[in-house]
């Protein structure tokens, strides 16, 4: 951990500390609406880190991360509504559930040498399969959805992940910061190097003694587990779950936006992407509401166009470019 910190250039250290301080102090000045936007920023930064681990570092394109998000969300909320098991315990059941799903997808894909586009399609297929399954799963309310009651005893207490926006704000902040630290640490770990090797050239990686199947499976395990935690947050923050929303391919695409815009395979890319994208999308919605235009698709059109523009003009993302401009990138020794 100390090693990571020391590797940052001085300006980077200042910048990180200032950003963290600002994030901690933000609730003093931010109103409820701004806070809700910031919650989304951290939430997407967090999920982006999880996905980026698999795609950006290990080079495996998953377009079905909604599967792990949904499984995490459904496991924890169902445990709460059905058995009264609180989310702080539920999360430790949600993680293995999603991780097991990830292992199945990874095992099927990589054992049978399903790669690239095919692998991406396999991940979509699993997410869709599960979505339809949950649409018919009576115990979690099927397609009519699963709702967290606000009236049951103790549901508004922090230990049950209930309460005001401040709770969710700091929780999302901690998740995003912890995920960033974890990713930064993994990047400099032997595992991180192995992932990069697998991403760059699997055959050469094998010749360097790397068990590529194992490396990919570990990436999937961590990525799916992290995403499941995000799902628990999602479930208790929104307090209602519909299979058609949480398992939707649109949800998977939402997850991949921030790291792609910010910069695939970089530690700060997902954060930068989330900071750029979420407020833009939100202000677009606000602006349209202000002018009385009620168009559900407009925000998605904006996201779609942004994806196309970024991938055409700046496929390595905004962060590498921005870091150079601000003199924050690591000096090349």
């Amino acid at each position: 951990m100390r090693d990571i910190w020391q590797r940052l250039p001085t300006r980077g250290k200042t910048f990180c500390l200032a950003a963290l301080a600002a994030a901690i102090a933000a609730p003093l000045v931010a109103d409820r609406y701004l806070l809700s936007v910031l919650i989304l920023v951290f939430y997407f930064a967090y999920l982006g880190q999880a996905w980026n681990l698999l795609m950006g570092f290990a080079g495996q394109l998953s377009l079905g991360h909604a599967l792990y998000l949904g499984l995490g969300a459904y496991t924890a909320t169902a445990l709460w509504t059905l058995f009264g098991i609180g989310p702080w315990i539920g999360v430790f059941i949600a993680i293995p559930v999603a991780a097991a799903a990830g292992m199945i997808v990874g095992w099927l894909g990589w054992r049978f040498a399903i790669e690239g586009v095919y692998f991406a399609l396999l991940t979509i297929a699993f997410a869709e399969f599960t979505r339809i399954g949950f649409d018919h799963l009576q115990i979690t309310g099927a397609s009519a959805g699963l709702f967290l009651s606000v009236n049951s005893p103790g549901s508004d207490k922090w230990w049950n992940l209930g309460g005001g926006p401040l709770l969710y704000y700091y929780l999302a902040l901690i998740l995003a910061a912890a995920a960033t630290l974890l990713v930064a640490w993994l990047r400099r770990s032997p595992l991180g190097y192995r992932w990069l090797a697998v991403r760059e050239d699997p055959e050469a990686a094998q010749a360097a003694g790397i068990d590529i199947f194992r490396a990919k499976m570990i990436a999937m395990l961590i990525s799916a587990s992290m995403t499941a935690v995000g799902g628990v947050f999602y479930g208790f923050y929104y307090r209602n779950l519909f299979p058609s929303q949480v398992f939707d391919i649109g949800r998977s695409i939402e997850i991949i936006m921030a790291p792609i815009i910010g910069g695939l395979g970089t530690v700060f890319g997902p954060i930068v992407g989330a900071i750029l994208l979420t407020p833009l999308g939100e202000s677009l919605t606000a602006l349209m509401q202000h002018f009385g235009i009620n168009t559900p698709g407009a925000k998605s059109i904006f996201y779609g166009l942004t994806l196309m523009v970024i991938i055409t003009l700046q496929p390595s993302g905004v962060w590498p470019w921005l870091a150079r401009k601000l003199g924050l990138d690591r000096p090349r020794a």
Binding site: Y193, R194, L196, A197, E200, D201, A204, A205, A208, G209, I210, R332
Partner: peptide, 13 residues
């Protein structure tokens, strides 16, 4: 490994 530095290439080995 094309996108990595020379040193990172050898570290992986």
């Amino acid at each position: 490994f094309p996108a990595l530095t020379v040193e990172d290439n050898v570290i992986i080995g």
